[in-house]
Computed example of a mutant assay.
Amino acid sequence: MSDVFLNFIAGGVGGSCTVIVGHPFDTVKVRLQTMPVPKPGEKPLFTGALDCVKQTVAKEGFFALYKGMAAPLVGVSPLFAVFFGGCAVGKYLQQTDPNQEMTFVQNAISGGLAGVFTTAVMVPGERVKCLLQVQQAGNASTGVQYNGPVDVIKKLYKQGGIASIYRGTAATLLRDIPASAAYLSVYEYLKKKFSGEGAQRTLSPGATLMAGGLAGIANWSVCIPADVLKSRLQTAPEGKYPDGIRGVFREIIREEGPKALFKGFTPVMLRAFPANAACFFGLELTLAAFRFIGVGGQPPKVEDVALANAE
């Protein structure tokens, strides 16, 4: 079970890389997903991802794109640690031999299981992040209410207790179980393809980045509709959706149509590749460092040299 601990630590490093690279794209995504529906004849708040970036930077400055980053940076590092630790648990439960190679389906099961594990860590951080991201976005229903992550937690607890802080749990599970299954299985499949055949498999830094980036695209291709529902639910005023995600879904279909379930598609896909390439590169680099110094009893692999040189 030492692999679980090593993957936990390496996942935390990968998660930090993900946040630093991907947060501006995420801010744009959330603002597009939660902007008010324009009245007939009225222009939308943002005409697209680029317009959202321009308006945000012009009105609030460049660092407004990093609003709310403290919450995911604190939350995402342990989140990815839990995710990759959970993947290792899933692998451990399915293997009959430590050297057994996992199939595509087995990796999908491991990823889905890890998606369940991460929900408890993710939901509060996502709720805080989304509320901070939509501030000063011209959303009259939200406005400027919070001075930072701690202030958000205090006010949410005062409004509705722990249930308010964990609003969006079901939506997060709906998003993350299939997305996490796609994420890990696609990465491991591409990693195997890119590393070649035979005993001397090598995975270059470029191949690691490519496999990680494409795995991120696979992840988000699966989960964008559920992510839109989650963002709407988590940024709505207290009591607006008493029946949760079902109420959000009915409102979106009634007022905006099915296309609205894919709001934020452009920034999501622009973010998916670099953020997840950075995540897996950080993960593999950390695991390579562990093997290099002999932690966990695993000998260094051929690709560890290439990763060390890239560092």
Results as ranks from 00 to 15, higher is better:
residue 42 E to K: 14
residue 45 L to G: 05
residue 45 L to H: 13
residue 45 L to Y: 08
residue 47 T to W: 06
residue 48 G to I: 04
residue 48 G to Y: 07
residue 50 L to T: 06
residue 51 D to W: 15
residue 52 C to A: 11
residue 52 C to L: 11
residue 52 C to F: 08
residue 53 V to M: 03
residue 53 V to H: 01
residue 53 V to Y: 05
residue 53 V to P: 01
residue 54 K to P: 00
residue 54 K to I: 00
residue 54 K to A: 00
residue 55 Q to D: 04
residue 57 V to E: 00
residue 57 V to L: 00
residue 58 A to M: 05
residue 60 E to W: 14
residue 60 E to K: 05
residue 61 G to K: 01
residue 61 G to M: 03
residue 61 G to H: 02
residue 62 F to G: 09
residue 63 F to C: 03
residue 63 F to K: 07
residue 64 A to G: 10
residue 65 L to V: 01
residue 67 K to G: 07
residue 67 K to L: 03
residue 69 M to P: 00
residue 69 M to K: 08
residue 70 A to P: 00
residue 70 A to R: 04
residue 71 A to V: 01
residue 71 A to I: 10
residue 72 P to E: 09
residue 73 L to S: 14
residue 73 L to R: 11
residue 73 L to M: 12
residue 74 V to N: 03
residue 75 G to W: 13
residue 78 P to H: 15
residue 78 P to N: 14
residue 79 L to I: 03
residue 79 L to K: 04
residue 80 F to A: 08
residue 80 F to P: 03
residue 80 F to H: 15
residue 82 V to E: 00
residue 82 V to H: 13
residue 83 F to D: 03
residue 85 G to T: 01
residue 85 G to H: 06
residue 87 C to N: 13
residue 88 A to N: 10
residue 88 A to M: 13
residue 89 V to Y: 06
residue 91 K to C: 01
residue 93 L to F: 02
residue 93 L to H: 04
residue 94 Q to S: 12
residue 95 Q to W: 05
residue 97 D to A: 08
residue 97 D to R: 11
residue 97 D to T: 07
residue 98 P to H: 14
residue 98 P to E: 15
residue 99 N to R: 08
residue 100 Q to F: 02
residue 101 E to R: 11
residue 102 M to V: 06
residue 102 M to T: 05
residue 102 M to W: 08
residue 103 T to R: 11
residue 104 F to P: 03
residue 105 V to K: 02
residue 105 V to E: 03
residue 106 Q to Y: 01
residue 106 Q to E: 08
residue 108 A to H: 03
residue 108 A to V: 02
residue 108 A to K: 10
residue 109 I to G: 05
residue 111 G to V: 12
residue 111 G to N: 10
residue 111 G to T: 09
residue 112 G to H: 13
residue 112 G to E: 06
residue 112 G to Q: 07
residue 113 L to M: 14
residue 113 L to W: 12
residue 114 A to L: 12
residue 116 V to R: 07
residue 116 V to Q: 01
residue 117 F to T: 10
residue 117 F to C: 13
residue 120 A to Q: 08
residue 120 A to P: 04
residue 121 V to F: 15
residue 121 V to S: 07
residue 121 V to Q: 06
residue 122 M to R: 10
residue 123 V to T: 13
residue 123 V to N: 10
residue 124 P to K: 14
residue 124 P to R: 11
residue 124 P to L: 15
residue 124 P to T: 15
residue 124 P to N: 14
